[in-house]
Design a protein around this nucleic acid. Structure first.
Lengths: 351, 351
DNA sequence: TTGTAGGCGTTATCAG
DNA sequence: CTGATAACGCCTACAA
């Protein structure tokens, strides 16, 4: 049973294809009689007419498709953003294609090609591209927005997550709480990402500003397993080591997953408590951080708003307009997993 | 700058469009000279020729698009399946459109329509549809596969998660461990789903088979917040109540998220320990279950294999062939969160 | 082995 | 206000 075409509708309604098109699209600057309109609508309904998007695309070269690039779904951060994007685009009449790269440049490139082939109306990157050259090239054809870390030398619209500021915020907060020996926990995948590097820089900067020595921060990187859960594993295993030491009083996970792993570890130890003995915090504000007890202190970027903004930018972009660079103002979300350093009176020195 | 078309390539290569088409598609039963082939390939390369999928679709009515329906991304179970599906389809040259319904029938219907409009080559449902009539209708046009609970009266290809068996497995396991008073924890969204009902039936059946009274199982439902994290919240808050009682020795979450919430609660209590005082387990085998300490006992359905199977079914389906019904054979994954009932010698009675 | 020609279902430009 | 008619870019008999 073949699908009804606009021609069929026209025939049934006793009008021309053109008229059908006008009615279906509510074409402006065309006024048709109520009668014709109704006739067409009825016919369309009766035949269950659904416009063929191929034909339409051929004419309009609009696909109503958006490509969303992400490295993995294993970190809930990405599905969360994905969902925000989907929720918003659906309202605008666009659909979303999942472009999961697994941090594999080949896959990334393949999806980039796909974007052209399918004439996607826009591309949103939730991480820093690996094929920068190709992405920039693509951006001449299709609007691209990066929702990740900003790199000044990239000529692409980007909404920066402002990793530096995130790191600074967290570190300043811990420093104000009296912590003098802080650990930064990275999984090995972390090293890849610009965002994560920036977070580290931010932390270091806060320490410097506080007049403390660089040794205040110690960085630990766990070897990587193969699967995504290894981020939490990483946090757990590094924390196991750290528990043997007396000096560390605060732990910053490179993201919430790592922080979660670290927290699990401490929760399982007999002698240490969070936050009385160790403070733990992360970045991203994924839902996990509110599901644990204690709930995890973290940094949020108003992700939903940023996602909507990214969509707006991508859809509004008119050809090669000026490159837009925005930075989110991250917010520290203090919850239960952080507190004054042990042996401190605990006054919060912040302004 | 307009995209190159096959006509451009033909002109540059000094051949006809037809030849270009032949070369690009490696059309069988056509042998062209190495020379022409190379000429065309070079020209295509030089012009960065990418076939226009609209035009191609218009002829072939294939979109190389798959619609994946899921209720939410908040439960990691769904992103996990989504990722499995994406990983596999990408290899087969298909892309995936995220159809997130938020359990809202209107959205679901809208996406169903979209599937027709975009001529998707297949649709995979990761939950039980709400517009069964519409889905069945759609299935006459587009292959549909359900990866969820089987309902005998639904004329759709389905891979059943076999919720009944899942419930049975878990219950039998706990019963064998000597538990005589078991709680089943549901969030209020759970009540919607067929899968979850089946799990409950399976549990009850196991109890019956063990010759124990129905009161062995007590069912608790938490009121629903608005967001997805409330599944874990539900587990947590119900567990808070249960901790005040002495009778319950084992808790089954309607899914891993609920189980996780329950676990968090117990972990935070002073007097109870998992699994010594309470056993906790769930369903789905999401990555969270291995991230906690103790790791959570759960049921797995070999989801990756099932996802690939679903994709195969959807792509191989030739028109209205016979409806295929498969059932997964779920596997109990015993981890650290379950153990013998308190006061039991703890022998495992299982064969 | 290669080229010609027609059509897929829309939209858009013109006349009427 | 409505109706022919011509593309859009590709595929595919069929012809050469």
């Amino acid at each position: 049973m073949k699908r009804a075409t606009s021609k069929d509708v026209a025939k049934l309604a006793g009008v021309s294809q053109t008229t059908v098109s006008f009615v279906m699209n509510n074409t402006p600057n065309v006024s048709l009689s109520e009668e014709t309109r109704k006739k067409v609508l009825d016919a369309a309904n009766q035949l269950q007419y659904i416009p063929n998007s191929f034909a339409r695309g051929l004419k309009t070269s609009q696909s109503k498709l958006l490509g969303v690039f992400l490295p993995t779904m294993d970190n809930p951060y990405y599905p969360m953003l994905m969902q925000y994007i989907e929720k918003y685009t659906a309202r605008l009449g666009y659909s979303v294609i999942l472009c999961c790269t697994y941090r594999n440049p080949e896959r990334e490139k393949a999806y980039l090609d796909l974007c052209e082939e399918k004439h996607m109306d826009g591309v949103i990157y939730l991480f820093t591209p690996n094929w920068m050259k190709r992405v920039v090239q693509l951006s001449h054809t299709i609007p691209v927005v990066l929702l990740s870390e900003k790199s000044d030398d990239i000529p692409l619209n980007t909404i920066s997550l402002n990793g530096f500021r995130c790191g600074y915020l967290v570190a300043k907060y811990l420093l104000d709480l009296g912590h003098k020996s802080i650990a930064f926990l990275m999984s090995s995948v972390s090293s890849v990402s610009l965002t994560r590097t920036k977070r580290l820089e931010g932390i270091r900067s806060a320490i410097r500003d506080a007049g403390l020595p660089p040794e205040t921060l110690q960085v630990f990187t766990a070897p990587l397993g193969d699967s995504g859960q290894s981020e939490a594993e990483a946090g757990y295993s590094i924390m196991e080591q750290l528990l043997k030491r007396k000096d560390i009083t605060a732990v910053i996970g490179v993201n919430d997953l790592v922080a979660f792993g670290a927290l699990s570890c401490v929760l399982n130890s007999e002698d240490k408590r969070v936050p009385q003995d160790v403070s733990i915090c992360g970045f991203d504000n994924i839902y996990l951080t509110t599901m644990t007890r204690p709930k995890i202190t973290t940094v949020s970027y108003c992700t939903e708003a940023l996602c909507e903004l990214a969509v707006d930018m991508v859809l509004k972009a008119t050809g090669d307009s000026d490159v837009l660079k925005l930075a989110s103002e991250p917010q520290l979300i203090v919850r239960e997993s952080t507190g004054p350093a042990p042996g401190t009176s605990g006054q919060c020195v912040s302004s």
